[in-house]
């Protein structure tokens, strides 16, 4: 339930000059694990996530989810998009109800759940608002609620807080930590923010670009349950120094 396994996965975008987006990537993510993919833009971290989501096909290697192949997108692998990607003509509640609706689930089953999720993400009063009437942080809360309403086995998050200001981002981190610690869903979290990766993840996979590959895996030794206060924890600082050294070394290698 919720395990992801990459075996020698490669992805080449064809063209006049083919781009190697991923080069022999190996990665195993266990049930209920929170893994962050950390790297600069263009390192293929979003491509890796899109493969699990079923949005793109790989060129070589194998990818399995819960032991089976991934062929198309599905509600068991819920995606939280960078800019939320809510449907602007639907209200907050309708956006969250989209999944259950197209899956033909009974209204009586999902309506209490939507109310509960709205409370969880602090948007009870905005059920009938349109996405355009919300702030960026509120929109992303809807994006998370929309994913959680489907009871996914894995949550795939593609730089979900990248467009938010620092304070909103911090409150979103706390929200995500709280939600994840109570649900225990497997999370694959793509980011280029070192602090975010350390604060949230059990394990950080550092990626480098051209060709995209995982250069190092770091197990984060920060006690759970976590909170944003641990940003000043000595263990946090140690991890940050370690990761920055790794990234600098990778840059020197490329230059």
């Amino acid at each position: 339930m919720g395990t992801i396994r990459f075996r020698e996965v490669g992805k080449i975008y064809p063209g006049k000059e083919p781009v190697v987006a991923l080069d022999r990537v190996n990665l195993e993510i266990g049930e209920g694990e929170f893994v962050a993919l950390l790297g600069p833009s263009g390192c293929g971290k979003s491509t890796l996530l899109n493969l699990v989501a079923g949005f793109e096909d790989m060129t070589s290697g194998t990818l399995s989810f819960n032991g089976g192949p991934v062929s198309s997108p599905g509600p068991e692998r819920a995606v939280v998009f960078q800019e939320a990607a809510l449907l602007p003509w639907l209200t907050v509640a309708q956006n969250i109800a989209f999944g259950p609706t197209v899956q033909r689930r009974g209204r009586a089953e999902y309506e209490p759940k939507i109310r509960e999720l709205l409370r969880l993400v602090g948007l009870e009063r905005f059920a009938d608002a349109l996405p355009s009437q919300l702030s960026g942080g509120m929109r992303q809360r809807v994006g998370i609620a929309r994913a959680l309403v489907m009871d996914p086995k894995a949550l795939l998050m593609d730089e979900p807080f990248g467009a938010l200001d620092a304070q909103t981002r911090m409150s979103m981190h706390q929200l995500l930590l709280d939600v994840w610690q109570s649900l225990g869903t497997t999370v694959l979290f793509v980011t280029h923010d070192i602090d975010e990766a350390i604060l949230l993840a059990d394990r950080i996979c550092i990626m480098s670009a051209r060709p995209g590959r995982i250069t190092r895996e770091i197990a984060v030794e920060l006690r759970r349950p976590r909170s944003v206060e641990q940003l000043t924890d000595p263990a946090f600082i140690r991890h940050k120094a370690e990761i920055m050294a790794e990234i600098r070394a990778a840059q020197k290698e490329h230059a």
Partner: peptide
């Protein structure tokens, strides 16, 4: 991403 989101949520 709207189309991807809908597919992800199980829309045919």
């Amino acid at each position: 991403n709207w189309i991807r989101a809908a597919r992800m949520m199980g829309a045919s």
